[in-house]
Amino acid sequence: MTDIELNGVSRWYGNVVAVNDVTLTIGPGLTGLLGPNGAGKTTVLHLMAGLMAPSQGEVSVGGQSAWRNPEMYRSLGLVTERESVPGNLTAWEFVLSSAKLHKLPDPAEAARKALAIVELEDAQDRRISTYSKGMRQRSRVAAALVHDPTVLLLDEPFNGMDPRQRLHMMELLNGMAGEGRTILFSSHILEEVEQLSGTVQVIVAGRLAASGDYRHIRRLMTNRPHQFTVTSSDNRLLATVLMGHASVSGVSLEPVGVLVQANDYGTFTRALAKLAREHKIRITQLIPSDESLEKVFSYLVAT
């Protein structure tokens, strides 16, 4: 009853294709929807939440069509990316009104529970406009949770959170996923999802690029080829030593330092310090080449 299914779904705006022929099924547990900015993540989430009609294909949640079907919201909650909160309300009023709009039998009790889950009880009587970004985010999560949905969609929930808040949110999501709910969140920052234990769907340029176990994708990422610029007390010696190591596929001696082409990010970074110490070379600088996330994702697509 809690599966989200996309079957050959495309969505275009005029001439721009935002989502291109995506077929996927998301079951209970925690799933990350990863991809660079502009990849179509928000469009996918809005399609699932019934806030947008697919141009082609079918979207269903728990076997029901998502589009033009308000009844679906009895079992689905959505936290949008846009920081849209009625700032004139307090978190209590906001979450309570959500509970009432869901026509729950005991709205006050449901609101209390939801605010407790996100640990916002202490601030619940302050206006939302006085909240920090993380608190606003949590108030919106509480409002989306108030009816105890079996499916929860979150668009960039970690945006603007500090590492501690992020960890807390991840624990929260993991906990809810452990109860058998289907939790799907999107993110464009891979570092954000390091504590994730679950599956991921990677979407690039509107297409589903990879899907599977996060640890597998993570390994692909740490094992990807990478460039570094190293400066040291003896660049020539360092170049010679590095060339002898299996993780290095190319070395060139440049005026700025030693340009290293490593074919395995993880192994190289571990080996470098050991090699330098053995040959009494002092490393003064180690700069990983500036790699955009788009590049990482497209590497994933290519493998």
Binding site: Y73, L78, R82, P86
Partner: peptide, 13 residues
């Protein structure tokens, strides 16, 4: 301001 999503994602006719 986008707060319409709060209303739209409720099981209301």
């Amino acid at each position: 301001d986008g707060t319409i999503t709060h209303l739209l994602t409720k099981p209301l006719p």
